[in-house]
Write a protein that binds this DNA or RNA. Structure first.
Lengths: 193, 193, 193, 193
DNA sequence: GATGAATGAGCGTTCATTCAT
DNA sequence: TATGAATGAACGCTCATTCAT
């Protein structure tokens, strides 16, 4: 038995962990059961089928996504706002790594997950664009700043780093969170002032 | 019969196409055979096993990767150099979509492919950093430019856009090539002058 | 369902029976399942793989072989001792027909089984030679008897009859057990007195 | 190309050699073609099918078997006659090892070969029994000799040694030809005088 | 006379899922 | 609530055989 949690929780945790390494297909019900310390057939008492486990995680993802989007409230300081956005995005995707990765890897099989992943990105972009537009109108941002494209670039950049960190877990390729926020995001922000 | 090409070519094409949708595991030998219009067992006359098909594509990837890295020769104009780099990177990854995606999605099962994908990224980064450092020393680039981090940001950005375009093929999320080079890369470059 | 035994027992029995007819390779998992009255995949719940079934039988063979060798205790009466030896050898090999035959037929693919079959033969030979040597020393056997070669001949003879009886099951070629012990073994023994 | 012989001869030789190691089933047409140095499909130009190769060898076996039986002409000297019989049997079976082994191993699949192997044994037995009976009638052999059973024992013994030598090629178990004839057969014969 | 390309049947094995207990 | 036994569909792969050249 993996830990003291509910059987259902242990199954969800086992599934999440295994998906990181093996992907959805490679995460067999046998592996899940072994890691969770239960019988394979027990899975089907708690979830309709293998897909049902994923659905549960997707539901949590969607709830948290709303929360994260609501939590992201730019305050009008470009630097702090981009750092805040990057931080929330990174925290959220890390918390929901398995769903994020399935959305990335198996987007064709699970279009609804791919959609969910995309939507989050769009919402973050919109929040930033809206705020920056507002700031541009009030003169806080120079009118020469190309808000739309800069925001696109920013989102691509933080998405790129998250993908690198998840897809190649053991690699030196991605930039660790703190360093990324302090150096890279801050540097990016400096061009918008 | 899918088209007039060699059986081997048809198999490679079928494999590549299916991998985009279904991933490596989901691309069954039966599907490959059906798409290529041959009997399933014919696959094994042309390739040692299923992995052998992938190996063939990886070999081509590695050859082309060398070529692409050699082709990327910055001329000392920041804007043109970044555009050139982004264009070559994008062209190369598009040509080798299937291998790139397998390296991204199934990095755990195929660490050598994940490595190959990573290496390309590092090589591009190094070429840029080397050139920009040289330009900074000769005064063509202001000494205030944070070459290392700017290059990181640039590479994350073009990587992010490539991943988006491949992973969510039918989505409106990624920025189409021409537009990306003209608007986003150019915009990014403008901050380095 | 073939009979009331455990699924595992039914599988082992089915495998054993089929091996006599078809050999190891010819005994397909489908045939085994059909004869045992279970689904083919059920085999793999009970045994790691096809070889695992054989391993199980080989383990039993090895255990029984020790027992058989220990049970064979010549009492110093040549005739009775040869009959006893022949009887134990025949009973043992008959009980483990399938393993014996695989060791004989597929010795190249399963050298460890071939070894096991050989060893039994050597052990029986040694027990006889040791006893007869002891009897020769105590004068119970004439010193003119060529113990080593006579024993070789005896073992070849009983081995030959066992092989005939197993390999050509429906033939009239081999000599049935009782008759063999009463006539042939006894006749052979008569020359050693 | 294996040697200068006819394609057909090379195929037959390749088949014979492979059968010793791998048995009939394990001797794939691909292996045969590789060893013979021809294309796999060439086999089917020379033989109807895989079984056809075996048939060819069986035909030769049957012709030679007649020859061997005719060659075996006991002269009335028990010792020399048994040695002669053992020698011819051994030579013949060695020459036709592959067929002999298939008859032994795959007797169920190829009953006609099993028959052929059995018949040879019966013919040898009959020749010996007939001669010894004749000798008994003429007083050359003591009337106390149990001709039938002694002959059975003798045939089992030489059969046993041949099987050992073929089935466990690399083993020290069987008794090498010369030694077998000089020691074992001679010893056996000594009891009949 | 021989080849190379292709096939279809069948093999051992894995997997998500069901069912009786 | 959970288990252990069993299943059927599918998978990657091998094999003897066919056919056009």
């Amino acid at each position: 038995m993996a830990n003291n949690n509910t059987t259902e929780e242990r199954l969800l945790t086992a599934f999440s962990d295994l998906v990181l390494k093996y992907g959805y297909r490679g995460t067999t019900t046998k592996k899940i059961a072994d890691v969770a310390g239960v019988n394979e057939s027990t899975i089907f008492r708690h979830f309709k089928d293998k897909h049902g486990i994923l659905n549960e995680l997707v539901n949590k993802y969607l709830q948290d996504a709303d929360q994260a989007a609501n939590d992201f409230k730019p305050i009008g300081d470009i630097e702090l706002d981009l750092i805040q956005g990057a931080k929330i995005y990174e925290t959220f995707t890390t918390t929901h790594r398995s769903v994020f990765l399935i959305g990335l890897r198996e987007s064709y099989q699970f279009p609804e997950i791919a959609d969910a992943v995309r939507q989050l990105q769009q919402r973050f972009k919109k929040i930033l664009v809206d705020k920056f537009t507002e700031m541009a109108e009030s003169g806080e941002i120079s009118s020469t700043v190309d808000i739309k494209n800069e925001t696109d670039n920013f989102v691509l950049m933080i998405f790129g780093n998250v993908v690198l960190s998840f897809a190649y877990t053991d690699a030196e390729l991605y930039i660790p969170s703190n360093q990324f926020l302090e150096n890279n995001v801050r540097l990016f922000a400096s061009h918008l002032k």
